[in-house]
C-alpha cells in the first residue's frame, strides 16, 4: 500500500510536471486568436496557472516523497526521490533557459487581442478650452 502510494507520487512528478510544462510553454509561445481583451487576459491567466503549478509541483512532489519515504523507511523510494531532486534542478535550469530566451516574462504575460481601440465619438466642450464643431 505504501509502496503504491509512493509510486503514484513519483509518477505524478515524473510525467505530470513535464506534461504541465509542455502544455504551458506551447500556450505561452502560441499566437492565439482572442477577440476581446478579457478573453486574452483569461488565456494568459490559464497559461500562468499551468506554468506556476508545474514549477511548484516540481519541488513539492520530490520533497514530499523524500520525507514520506524516510518516514516509512522505504529504501527504494528514498533513493529514487533523493535522486529525483537532481531532475528538479534540471527542470528549473531548462525553464530558466527558456525564460532567458523569451523577451517577455514567462509568467504574467497576456497575449495580444483583436479588440478594436475605442473611438472617440463624443465631444465635450471645456470652459476656456476647446470648443466643439457645430456648437
Amino acid at each position: 500500500m505504501r509502496r503504491a502510494g509512493l509510486g503514484v507520487l513519483f509518477v505524478a512528478w515524473l510525467y505530470g510536471v513535464p506534461f504541465l510544462l509542455i502544455v504551458g510553454l506551447i500556450r505561452r509561445t502560441s499566437s492565439p486568436y482572442l477577440a476581446t481583451r478579457s478573453a486574452a487576459q483569461a488565456f494568459g491567466a490559464t497559461t500562468d496557472t499551468l506554468l506556476t503549478t508545474a514549477l511548484v509541483l516540481n519541488l513539492a512532489l520530490p520533497v514530499t516523497g523524500v520525507l514520506l519515504a524516510r518516514l516509512v523507511r522505504h529504501r527504494y523510494w528514498t533513493r529514487h526521490f533523493g535522486w529525483s531532486l537532481v531532475g528538479t534542478v534540471l527542470i528549473y535550469v531548462a525553464v530558466s533557459i527558456a525564460q532567458s530566451a523569451a523577451t517577455a516574462p514567462l509568467i504574467g504575460w497576456t497575449p495580444d487581442d483583436q479588440e478594436p481601440a475605442p473611438r472617440v465619438t463624443q465631444c465635450i466642450p471645456t470652459s476656456g478650452g476647446r470648443g466643439c464643431p457645430g456648437g
Partner: peptide
C-alpha cells in the same frame, strides 16, 4: 501534452 497544448489554442 503537445496535443492538449495545441487543442487549447483558439
Amino acid at each position: 501534452a503537445v496535443f492538449v497544448g495545441h487543442a487549447g489554442i483558439p
